[in-house]
Design a binder for these strands. Sequence first.
RNA 1: GCCCUUGUGGCGGAAUCGGCAGACGCGGCGGACUCAAAAUCCGUUUCCGAAAGGAGUGGGGGUUCGACUCCCCCCGAGGGCACCA
Length: 808
Amino acid sequence: MNQESHTFDPHVIQERWLSVWDEIEPFNSAKENDLREKKYVLDMFPYPSGDLHMGHAEAYALGDVIARYWVQKGFNVMHPIGWDAFGLPAENAAIKRGENPRTWTYANIATQKASMRNYACSFDWQRVLNTCDPEYYKWNQWFFLQMYKQGLAYRKASAVNWCTSCQTVLANEQVVAGLCERCDSVVTKKNLTQWYFKITDYADRLLDDMQQLEGNWPDKVLLMQRNWIGKSVGAEVEFEIEGLSKSVTIYTTRPDTLYGATFFVVAADSDLALELVRGTSVEAEFHTYLEKVKQTSEIERLSTTREKTGVFLQRFAINPVNGEKLPIYASDYVLADYGTGAIMAVPAHDQRDLEFALTFDLPIRIVVESDENPITSRTATSDDGIHINSGSLNGLNTSQAIEKVIEELAKENKARKSVNYRLRDWLISRQRYWGTPFPIIHCPACGEVPVPETELPVQLPDASGLDLSPKGSSPLGAAKDWLEVPCPECQGPAQRDSDTMDTFVDSSWYFLRFLDPNNHEKPFDSQLAKEWLPVDQYVGGVTHAILHLLYARFFTKVLFDMKLIEFNEPFTRLLNQGMVLMDGSAMSKSRGNLVALSDELAKHGVDAIRLSMVFAGPPEDDVDWADVSPSASKKFLARAWRLAHDVTSEPGTDPREGSVEVRRLTHKLMHEAGLAVESYRFNVAVAKSMELVNGIRKAIDSGVSTSDPAVREGVESLAILLSLFAPYTAEDMWQVLGHPPTVMLAGWPTIDQALLVEDTVTCVIQVLGKVRDRIEVAADISESDLIAQALETEGVKRHLVGKNIKTV
RNA sequence: GCCCUUGUGGCGGAAUCGGCAGACGCGGCGGACUCAAAAUCCGUUUCCGAAAGGAGUGGGGGUUCGACUCCCCCCGAGGGCACCA
């Protein structure tokens, strides 16, 4: 062995193997006649906003552990990658640099792709896709048209979320605490006619099918989805309006408190409010109020300290249970788009109603008994209790009263059980350039006309010559040559829809396109979907817990109903990796990348960075790079690598002829490492590899020959285990051990169960739950012998001055 | 405000089942090699105590022969939702 072979230089090793792997393609999942069982491991695809950063390095290191493990276990693993390439950052960068978003995007994709290759991601490079390729977004348009035909895509006018900075509308899910998810700017309301997907039709299935995911998805994500869908069970109740031949329906979860209603509120921005106020003397006052409401920003509206506001509409609603006249107010604390946009107000038992009552000096009537008095405490009581002041409901508890009042009112057709959801339809229009154009033509004579499927894709016109700056309407509106087309139906002059689709449409089905990314006939092949899907393991950030995952689940259900696929949940198992922090603060493009991945890779090598990411802690926890020591990882890899050089036997020796001690260690640790990987305890699996290195080194130091076949077996196992975290080092070790490449396909060693059973065990002896002594005994010792021996130990004798009652 | 998660050495973290707390690593300390340093290797490292021994998994209580693990209350940290009637 020469001098050079004992110096571990990660960069030399990296140079050695990249081109070899390119040739072997160990992770090509589409080879002919591959009989291995299939598994689909998917990493959330990246946005090409620049080169890879520390966050990518963590995510892909983790995804790789799983993918590489299943390959070693003998599966044909599909682990594809692509780019989520449409969207605002490209457009904003292009505006800033006076560049074309297309040029910028493809340049970044090339950079990231090269970095991923160097990072040794186990991606199947045959299956790459970019969502901004017409070949891809053609199918967004196709899906849109299918959904349009089924009434699942529709256009409506309503007050929508408007980002004042991006100058575009946002989906409900993209408004975070009143601010734009992307740029943190103030969000206001704007009345616009926009495209929606009818995700609310699927609310119940999105909720119910989560049962399948229980235990396989993080509880946190399931809970967030449940809360987001927000199913609520209650009743609708009819209230007559005095002096109008009209009744108004309200929604309530507490119909039992009907006797406690002392006023009535309609959403200020609802059509109902307009209708009710018409002809009264407060019309002008109402409109002034309405204007003020419309200008209120989301954050202001949501402020908890904000005083309740409203206008008395000079109308009265008749309470169906007792005929009382309730004054009707218009206020912004009632939402126009939830329930019916109108409520009965029960100030004693609803905090919001109580605050309104206190502000407007309205009566408060207690109808459910409680220790606290809402009038004096200024806190509404919402607990269950015995009903009082409630006519026929007196003496009943809450659930009994709910049943009874609905039953009674139902006889007069004045109430019925009802279910509501927080979930709103998915607003998919965006007033920006870099996205999928809607395949719809607006004709003055025929209305909305779908572009014929044979004419798809509707390609984006070139950006040059277009003003992409945000101005509240789509830049495509100015592309006259593109915009103005004959109507497909009447051939008269018509215009394309100039908005583009939310990029979450792109990512709602990309996992299907990977099956067949070059299929020109259809979005994907149903037979391939049957073979590969659903995704066995999905890996990505928890930031997508609601948006992306909800939308992808929705798409899956729609495709299921279209009979294109036979499963109704897309991702069987989900792992949310944590974030990479530096000294406690998040690293991101906007906050400045505190640590540059490229610098770290240059300093320590790819394997040391990957190993550090995996070893830092449980994958779902955040990693603080300040707590991580990549140089220690490098040191460990060098130690493992040197061990391979110490092996002096030839490949193919029979390990059964070697040291039993070393074999025990190897088999036990490999067994535990496998279990650790399967239960996402990757950091523990790394620890096992360290124990293996330490153990073999110690064995050699204490006299086991370097030519012992068990030493070879141990180091070979080590190389296979390390191939999950440190592929370059593992491959080099494999070569040093005398094997041809590649260690990636070496196969997980078979664990000899007999070696997992010890001959002797250390028995710990406790007295009153405290460890008092320990003895080395044969593993098959009888209970009576063990008890006898235990009673003879010093530690036990010392602590048994009294008498013993039980022994275990 | 409501909901969820979490709390273990100086630090990151281990501990399938209720059964040796602190695996593995960082950092620290001591040593070997070296003229010296780097690299490497060995030992040690929860706390109190010289030792015997005792205490110890945020705090308090409970169940149990036995609790980091299960139950109740409290405190701290992180996250989600936030006028959804």
